[in-house]
Design a protein around this nucleic acid. Structure first.
Lengths: 149, 149
DNA sequence: CAAAAATTTGGATATATACCAAGTTTTGAA
DNA sequence: TTCAAAACTTGGTATATATCCAAATTTTTG
């Protein structure tokens, strides 16, 4: 089967900032250089370098020093969850009077503290919407879980 | 008029833990002792003592050393917002398949990062519900704002 | 009033972020 | 191809939050 299985995760593993790094790296796809990330996230390259090391140690990234990083399989799967979480929560808030931009900004501040369990329930309760306010929503893992329960 | 006005706040002023302290103190009403808070929040009294100092310095509490703390007017108004935020967000999540307990727990983790602006919009969009899943919701400040716009 | 309980202070640790300066590696232009 | 510039990493430092323990202080109480 093509469906890769990863150990369970709560969705609370990473700090807000680390979530930013992974989302940024996923967007760029392929190998990403330190400078690119530093510009994107507006931080000193030395900060990026350190954070990349931490994410690599935790198994989310492959880091070839001086060369760049790319997502591991775990990192890819995890980051797909991060993106789905962001989009589901943003979409949710637009149903309560927030504009897409407001919703995105708001969610960016707190998303790292919303569990996968909650996201899956919300997602399911919304009928697994395909379109968020900041991109398409893919439900691989989410629907997968649901099938098995 | 009885309606006290306070400088604007974003709702993002306090860390998650400080939010816990204020909510706990509001619940108890009147003067609260360090030990009481320490037991309630499961932390060492020395930790409580330090946090209480910080909250007092920031103007949310009156702290009489060795005697206890109580909310200032600002602290009271602010904490009422904190409680409303918690209840509105919890109620919201119960509309998406989370049980009241799950919703409360989930919200406790991220509420500190949800702005007053967003809460007011959500609240308004929900029709200023009077009952949450963990207590009555009062809308003093929320409705007040709305009248002026 | 003196011992016990409560509280505070000082010192230490841990995590998360981030900067600067200095050193290392890669790149690219002459 | 070589060597200077650019990119990257490391080491050191800093702030903010949160926590504990041990020691000192204040209040309470038997």
């Amino acid at each position: 089967m093509n469906e890769q299985s990863y150990p369970e995760f709560t969705g609370l593993e990473l700090s807000p900032r680390k979530v930013d790094y992974l989302k940024f790296i996923l967007e760029k796809e392929g190998t990403v250089k330190t400078t690119e990330i530093s510009s994107g996230l507006q931080v000193d390259p030395s900060t990026t370098s350190k954070t990349l090391n931490e994410l690599a140690s935790a198994g989310y990234l492959n880091h070839v020093p001086y060369r760049g990083v790319d997502l591991t399989e775990l990192g890819e799967a995890y980051t797909q969850f991060l993106v789905r979480r962001h989009r589901i929560l943003s979409l949710l808030l637009t149903h309560y009077g927030l504009s897409p931009e407001e919703a995105c900004d708001e969610v960016s501040r707190f998303e790292a503290f919303v569990s996968r369990e909650a996201v899956d329930k919300i997602c399911s309760s919304m009928g697994h919407p395909m379109f968020g306010v900041c991109g398409e929503i893919s439900h691989g893992k989410c629907l997968h879980e649901e099938n098995h329960h």
